[in-house]
């Protein structure tokens, strides 16, 4: 074989940005998801820089105003500027999502690794706990936890913590099964034969190959955290004072907003959640396409 000595410089290597652009054009759900997310970030950042966050709290502005130039999304019964509430609420929702998502993924990755790599009784215990917790609706246990907290103690951070407590089983099982298959692959066997220690194998051989799965688990966890914290808030278990998107909907629902013709009140947070959860779902689908190339064929 003499043809392998190709002159590499003869090919113009496109820049990473161009390659990324080309990929996104093919993977539409990932592209659209990322675009929506970017717009939401811009909206929130711009809002936080220009509004007075105090107006997101009760008794700051005129009550029950229809959307207008002064109040683009109207105001509610308690005198909150709903545009400001939306900006602050988006920021808080994102905070809970990313915090709980990151923490849940971290716990999942660590437990999944330990479970799969070391096996034995550790694996049995971790897997057993995951299996027993799976049939228990996580949300209801979160209801108990959040309900047991003193309402004054509930903050954005306790919300995130409550969500994480029952959100690590998914990533644990995913990472566990991935590490189990990777353990059997040749490159790990080679590394073991060449005398590499456990930590070396984990961080140099297995971890880099796991990154796509960790990224996917993270997106899934953020979706899950936003979803669950929203549901808790809709039941009135959120930090009641904060203009969290779910809280706004709980308030509107409690005040029978539609009955009273204050239709704009729950609509803005509802649309915001459609965009957040929708973009995360699209990104998740896009990442699935990377992980499972067979799906691509039908597009």
């Amino acid at each position: 074989m003499t043809t392998t000595t190709l002159d590499r410089t003869a090919f113009l290597q496109p820049s990473p940005m161009t390659l990324m652009g080309r990929y996104l054009r093919r993977n539409k759900s990932l592209a659209v998801g990322l675009l929506i997310l970017l717009l939401l970030v811009l909206f929130t950042a711009n809002g936080l820089a220009t509004v007075d966050a105090e107006n997101a709290y009760p008794l700051s502005v005129k009550t029950k105003q229809v959307p207008s130039v002064e109040f683009p999304l109207g105001t509610d019964y308690y005198g909150r500027d709903l545009y400001v509430a939306m900006v602050v609420g988006l920021w808080q929702t994102a905070l809970i999502g990313v915090l709980a998502g990151a923490l849940g993924t971290l716990v999942g990755v660590v437990l999944g690794f330990i479970s799969a790599y070391f096996g034995g009784w550790l694996d049995a215990v971790i897997k057993g706990i995951c299996q027993i917790l799976t049939p228990i609706p996580a949300f209801l246990i979160q209801v108990i936890i959040a309900g047991s907290l003193d309402k004054r103690d509930v903050t954005i951070y306790t919300m995130a913590f409550v969500v994480v407590l029952l959100a690590w089983m998914g990533p644990t099982l995913v990472i566990r099964s991935q590490v189990l298959t990777m353990k059997e692959r040749q490159f790990v066997a080679v590394a073991k034969l060449s005398g590499m220690g456990d930590l070396g194998i984990i961080f140099r051989e297995i971890f880099p190959n796991l990154l796509p799965f960790i990224a996917a688990a993270f997106v899934g966890q953020v979706f899950f955290a936003v979803f669950q914290s929203f549901y808790l808030a809709v039941l009135g278990l959120g930090p009641l004072r904060e203009p969290l998107l779910g809280n706004t909907i709980w308030n509107a629902n409690g005040a029978s907003a539609f009955f009273n013709n204050w239709w704009w009140w729950p609509m803005a947070p509802a649309f915001a959640l459609v965009l957040i959860l929708g973009s995360l779902a699209l990104i998740n689908m896009g990442m699935d396409e990377i992980a499972n190339p067979r799906i691509r064929r039908t597009e």
């Binding site: 929203f230 809709v234 609509m267 959640l273 459609v274």
Partner: peptide, 10 residues
């Protein structure tokens, strides 16, 4: 990606 609760409000 749209949970039933949001669907309900819409």
């Amino acid at each position: 990606g749209v949970p039933p609760a949001i669907m309900a409000i819409l």
